[in-house]
């Protein structure tokens, strides 16, 4: 039995009163969600838009606060951990969907990475430089990029840079919110392969949010299927794909397959 990194119980989250004309409707993003993430695991969270998967990810890293429910990180309540942000974020990092939006457009790449490392660790300037070099190599980025501005990077480079930033402090856990959805397919494939390699060399626990079953299948040993703020199904990814227990998972799977194979749709 390995140690638990995250333990989540009865998580509720609503986003209130969307617009005056809509009778004060409240959107229920999460509705009693509970699960655990074991150390070293790769957990995929799959669902369509509005299923609450992104909210879940943002709550795990402290970007949103849950309305109800408990979360512990390595046995300590998340709220306590967040009171010491330096210690927490050294261990837990996040990767955003849109790599360009995740970097300050007015700063050079090198400065962004250095600031990140400076606030998370006690490393001195030369040590930080070495660490940045090392990460750039690991994420297959050229050192020359350090002098560039984020908008001059390609989509693939920018997302590799996001991974590099997340891994700078050698975190124990990385939560990723649709990190490949905004990328072209060929770039997507390269990033996914890199992610696999990085997990091997840095051995971090991964929570991977995606709407794409195929991508999750490639990376994650275990998968949670979410729908309308609730967990529909959870289990080893292989089992989930071969014998989906709920009709929703089956529907997702079939939609994926038919688009992929082009069967059942073509008129010919």
């Amino acid at each position: 039995m390995s140690d638990l990194v995250f333990q989540v119980k009865g998580l509720h989250k609503t986003f209130g009163r969307k617009g005056l004309l809509r009778r004060g409707r409240v959107v229920q993003a999460l509705h009693g969600v509970g699960f655990e993430v074991a150390e070293g695991a790769a957990l995929g969270v799959v669902g369509e838009s509005g299923s609450g998967k992104s909210t879940l990810a943002r709550i795990l890293v402290g970007l949103e606060k849950p309305d109800r429910g408990t979360i512990t990180f390595k046995g300590r309540p998340l709220g306590d951990c967040l009171r010491e942000p330096t210690a927490f974020y050294r261990q837990v990092q996040f990767v955003f969907q849109n790599p360009y939006a995740a970097f300050n457009p007015r700063k050079r790449v090198g400065a962004i990475l250095d600031t990140h490392l400076r606030h998370l660790t006690d490393l001195k300037a030369p040590a930080r430089r070495d660490r940045i070099r090392e990460i750039m190599t690991a994420t297959q980025l050229d050192d020359g990029l350090l002098r560039r501005y984020p908008h001059s990077l390609s989509g693939g480079q920018a997302q590799r840079l996001s991974l590099a930033r997340a891994l700078l402090s050698r975190p124990a856990v990385v939560v990723m919110d649709e990190p490949v959805s905004a990328l072209d397919v060929s770039v997507q494939a390269r990033i996914l392969r890199l992610l696999r390699d990085l997990r091997e060399s840095f051995s971090f626990t991964l929570v991977f949010i995606s709407h794409d079953l195929a991508v999750v299948d490639y990376l994650c040993g275990e998968t949670i299927v979410m729908r309308e703020g609730e967990i529909q199904e959870r289990g080893p990814t292989a089992a989930l794909l071969s014998q989906p227990a709920t009709s929703y998972t089956l529907e997702l799977l079939e939609a994926c397959r038919s688009v992929e194979a082009g069967t059942g749709l073509s008129l010919r």
């Binding site: 060929s186 494939a189 079953l213 490639y218 080893p236 292989a238 992929e260």
Partner: peptide, 25 residues
């Protein structure tokens, strides 16, 4: 064609490789 991940396969180039050990399946 090769780069789009497919269910149960992943990007094709990796077909010959086994999953990394850290994946707890």
């Amino acid at each position: 064609l090769e780069s789009s991940p497919r269910l149960g396969k992943g990007p094709k180039q990796d077909l010959g490789l086994s999953r990394p050990e850290i994946d707890p399946v």
